[in-house]
């Protein structure tokens, strides 16, 4: 299963970023192999359409689940069309590692 998590930093111990489109980084995790990859979000300073840009990143990286704080209307319609599951952080989710653990434990809520 490939997860993409919005993150404020470039590693797994960074704090999660509650924003999807304007997130600094995305951490891509393959839960089968535990392999991680960092994706820099080029849309972070984009004037508009950052959510769609981020959704495109998720699609291009073949994500199956995207985890963030919230998803805007454009991003969510694109992700929905792509058949990608959207999930939101729980109250106790602070780092990217937490998000991965909470996902595996089934503690996260699905969005939309």
């Amino acid at each position: 299963m490939i997860l993409i998590i919005s993150s404020q930093g470039a590693d797994i111990n960074s704090l999660v970023d509650p924003r999807f489109g304007r997130s600094q980084f995305f951490i891509k995790v393959d839960t089968d192999t535990n392999h991680c990859e960092v994706i820099t979000n080029s849309g972070v300073n984009q004037r508009g359409g950052a959510g769609i840009g981020a959704a495109q990143i998720a699609v291009d990286n073949k994500a199956e689940v995207v985890i963030s704080g919230n998803f805007g209307p454009n991003a969510s319609s694109a992700l929905k069309a792509a058949g990608i599951t959207m999930m939101t952080f729980g109250q106790e989710t602070s780092t990217v590692q937490d998000a991965i653990d909470h996902y595996k434990q089934g503690k996260l809520n699905s969005f939309g």
Binding site: G43, Q46, R47, G48, A55, Q56, V59, A81, A82
Partner: peptide, 12 residues
């Protein structure tokens, strides 16, 4: 302006 996205087999 990110007005287009390639999603699956279509362009949104």
């Amino acid at each position: 302006f990110h007005a287009l996205a390639e999603i699956g087999k279509s362009i949104m």
